[in-house]
Nucleic acid binder design. Structure first.
Lengths: 193, 193
DNA sequence: TTCTTTCTTGAATGTACGTTCAAGATATAA
DNA sequence: TTATATCTTGAACGTACATTCAAGAAAGAA
């Protein structure tokens, strides 16, 4: 007879930002209260506990990144040009030094412990979906003769995923735009030829 | 008039292992006490505080990885063969699913916050040294005509560092030896040619 | 042996956190 | 308007942690 007052998506985006900036452990309930405007009781009612917020935030992150991916690949350009712009955007994120623009999957993966296999599994599944979406695009590019067909699209996708993770991780210590662009170029070229 | 009873290096290796397995935040003083056999007082006397243990562990990690690096590159083989074995060893670490065999630099980088710029700086400096050591080896390989000279050794080294970070991060969710080997092969090839 | 310096011990302290829950507020239905 | 169901509030609770420190132990010097 009464609906919740808060916007679930907005709350999750706030939590996402905090988890990326400070990490899960160092994000306290007071932090979440301050960022979301929600009181502990409401948070616990909506997400059960702190871990529930993380899981919901990861799911929201997946949805958001998914939409972003689709946007990059829904133009009329050649697929390789779409990939180039997709990579450029990642390089921009890496070079921005904006900690909230990192990858929540990586951040949560590195923070998850042995006891928390579920989080690892959820993220692994999300990454697999992302990998598959990339592989599908490479397959399309091969059919359109934009790419040679001597290498499997799944392999190319794995290499791109690895490269993106490398870029993101490298930028943690060396957020130098010139270097990152050169690395992205070489990565792109070693996929193209 | 009395020497400390504990072996500093052993203590730091224990701490290193804990920090890699559980992360810094989730490693508690009771954990450290159990793993090192040292009581809080002794730990605080030797390292000032928990953060001091992390800094000392990072330094020990640097020393250990440095020795390992030198060992791989002190044979009489061609330098590219040394690189191949170096990479193979990293792939083995990644595929082993042994959380203690990860990279403490990455782990600590991803856990460090904005307020802890010193940790980030220390690690960035350590990574730069590692990068330079790799670049020097590539330079040697170029002089020995093992590598073409059309790309700067510093760039090749950056690409290798990025690739290794990519492999390590990728293996966090997909510790599949076959995939990792294929990725390492492509990485190695895109440096060679 | 005795003295003195240094290291070791582990209980105690203060703090900060995740979580709970009962009282209060508010929106819808009757 | 009144009743009722649901959401919101925030104080309170228990726990676990990093850190301290004074007492005890032990090694070397005299």
């Amino acid at each position: 007879m009464r609906n919740a007052e808060f916007d679930r998506v907005k709350v999750l985006r706030s939590a996402m930002t905090l988890f990326m900036e400070k990490g899960y452990s160092k994000t306290s309930m007071p932090d979440l209260k301050k960022a979301t405007g929600l009181h502990p009781g409401s948070i616990y009612c909506a997400f059960e506990n702190k871990r529930g917020i993380l899981l919901a935030a990861i799911e929201q992150y997946r949805v958001d990144r998914n939409e972003e991916f689709s946007a990059f690949f829904s133009t009329n350009e050649p697929i390789l040009d779409q990939f180039k712009k997709y990579l450029d955007n990642i390089v921009d994120e890496c070079a921005s030094c904006d900690t909230s623009k990192g990858c929540l999957f990586i951040k949560a993966l590195y923070e998850s412990t042995e006891e928390d296999q579920e989080i690892k599994m959820v993220i692994a599944e999300n990454i697999s979906q992302w990998h598959q979406a990339i592989a599908d695009k490479f397959k399309q590019a091969q059919k359109a003769k934009e790419l040679p067909e001597n290498r499997k699209s799944e392999h190319l996708a794995h290499f791109l995923v690895m490269g993106i993770y490398g870029l993101r991780t490298f930028s943690q210590s060396h957020p130098d735009k010139n270097i990152l662009e050169a690395l992205a170029d070489q990565l792109f070229n070693s996929i193209r030829y």
